[in-house]
Simulated scan of single mutants.
Amino acid sequence: MSKTATVRARIEPDLKDRVEHVFRQLGLTATQAITLFYKQVEQQRGLPFSVSLPNAVTQKTFEDTDAGRNLTVCEDTDDLFEKLGI
């Protein structure tokens, strides 16, 4: 089948660069990755990953962390595990 359709999207330049770096590590071009995404949407008849709104607890956690509230800061992994009780 001939590839003649074009998809255009505006995206943040930094995000584009970071994602295309991942694509290169996977041996994919952006076109191949977009085609793969489209094929998965077609096959699954929806997005190939879960998309949902956060529950109230998660939303409050997002708001708190964005505002710098209720944060636990750890010096290193040992400190993290100690604070978690692991």
Score class of each variant (00 low, 15 high):
residue 67 A to D: 08
residue 20 E to S: 09
residue 25 Q to A: 12
residue 72 T to A: 08
residue 23 F to W: 10
residue 81 F to H: 04
residue 8 R to Q: 14
residue 75 E to Y: 06
residue 79 D to N: 01
residue 10 R to S: 14
residue 46 G to F: 03
residue 3 K to E: 11
residue 29 T to Y: 03
residue 46 G to E: 03
residue 75 E to T: 11
residue 62 F to M: 09
residue 41 V to S: 07
residue 34 I to C: 08
residue 43 Q to C: 06
residue 31 T to S: 14
residue 26 L to H: 09
residue 26 L to C: 04
residue 16 K to I: 03
residue 29 T to M: 01
residue 32 Q to Y: 02
residue 7 V to P: 08
residue 48 P to S: 00
residue 60 K to P: 05
residue 21 H to S: 14
residue 1 M to D: 15
residue 62 F to S: 10
residue 42 E to C: 11
residue 57 V to I: 03
residue 38 Y to A: 00
residue 67 A to E: 07
residue 62 F to L: 07
residue 19 V to L: 12
residue 8 R to M: 12
residue 12 E to L: 12
residue 69 R to A: 08
residue 35 T to I: 05
residue 37 F to A: 06
residue 44 Q to Y: 12
residue 14 D to P: 02
residue 74 C to R: 09
residue 62 F to G: 03
residue 61 T to S: 13
residue 37 F to D: 00
residue 84 L to E: 01
residue 27 G to V: 05
residue 5 A to W: 13
residue 38 Y to L: 05
residue 55 N to R: 06
residue 6 T to C: 13
residue 1 M to G: 15
residue 3 K to Y: 14
residue 56 A to P: 12
residue 41 V to H: 02
residue 83 K to W: 01
residue 85 G to M: 01
residue 64 D to F: 04
residue 39 K to W: 04
residue 46 G to C: 05
residue 40 Q to C: 02
residue 28 L to K: 14
residue 76 D to Q: 01
residue 15 L to S: 12
residue 61 T to Y: 07
residue 4 T to G: 12
residue 4 T to D: 15
residue 45 R to G: 15
residue 73 V to L: 09
residue 31 T to V: 05
residue 13 P to A: 07
residue 13 P to G: 00
residue 66 D to V: 10
residue 4 T to K: 14
residue 1 M to I: 12
residue 58 T to Y: 08
residue 5 A to P: 14
residue 49 F to V: 00
residue 35 T to L: 12
residue 28 L to Q: 04
residue 4 T to E: 13
residue 5 A to C: 11
residue 43 Q to R: 15
residue 31 T to Y: 02
residue 31 T to Q: 13
residue 31 T to H: 09
residue 52 S to K: 15
residue 75 E to P: 01
residue 71 L to N: 08
residue 67 A to P: 02
residue 24 R to F: 04
residue 18 R to H: 06
residue 81 F to K: 06
residue 53 L to I: 10
residue 6 T to N: 15
residue 38 Y to N: 08
residue 48 P to W: 05
residue 18 R to P: 00
residue 42 E to M: 10
residue 15 L to Y: 09
residue 62 F to A: 11
residue 61 T to A: 13
residue 11 I to S: 05
residue 68 G to M: 01
